[in-house]
Amino acid sequence: MITLINRFEVTGSVEEFEHAFDGTSAFFAAQPGFVRHRLLRHLDRPGHYVNVADWEDTRSFQQALRQPEFAAHRAVLRALSHSDPELYTAHLERVPS
């Protein structure tokens, strides 16, 4: 499994960003290899978000990005925000026993 961590700083309307991100989330949720995601909103800095998305593998994630339908989602989010996407793999995980 891989994890996308994408930090967003909204430069446009927060409401428009959240609406656009909801559409993008629905698009990704329908793609093969998608596992789950969470959009986190910063408590003290309005307009700052983090997307944490899990995918089965890098190939699945990259195929989703190449879908022609994704271009419109990307354009809207880029018009409303700056982002910093990075891919990670789990190194250490602990859960309560």
Results as ranks from 00 to 15, higher is better:
Y49E: 07
A71G: 09
S81L: 02
A29I: 03
E69K: 05
M1K: 14
F27E: 05
A72R: 12
A20K: 11
L87M: 05
F61H: 12
M1I: 09
R78F: 11
A71D: 10
V76Y: 04
N6F: 07
A90E: 14
Q31S: 14
R41F: 00
R36A: 12
R7E: 02
P46L: 12
Q63G: 07
L80E: 05
D44G: 09
G33Q: 09
L39M: 11
V35T: 13
F8A: 00
E69C: 04
H82D: 07
R78E: 15
Q31M: 15
V52Q: 08
R59I: 09
A29W: 05
G12N: 02
H48W: 01
T11I: 06
Q63T: 06
T24R: 08
H42E: 15
E9S: 14
S81F: 05
A53R: 03
A79P: 00
N6G: 02
A75T: 13
L43N: 09
A75E: 13
L4S: 03
T24D: 11
E18C: 13
A30G: 11
A71M: 12
F34I: 01
P85C: 00
D54N: 07
T3D: 06
R7Y: 08
H82W: 02
F17E: 06
R41Q: 06
E69I: 00
T58I: 12
G33M: 07
T11Y: 03
A30D: 12
A64M: 08
R78K: 14
R38E: 10
V76P: 02
S25R: 13
P85A: 00
A29F: 02
F70T: 09
W55K: 05
P32M: 14
F27Y: 15
E16I: 06
F61C: 06
P85H: 03
R94D: 13
F70H: 13
T89C: 15
A79Q: 03
L92R: 13
A64S: 12
R59P: 08
P32H: 09
E15N: 04
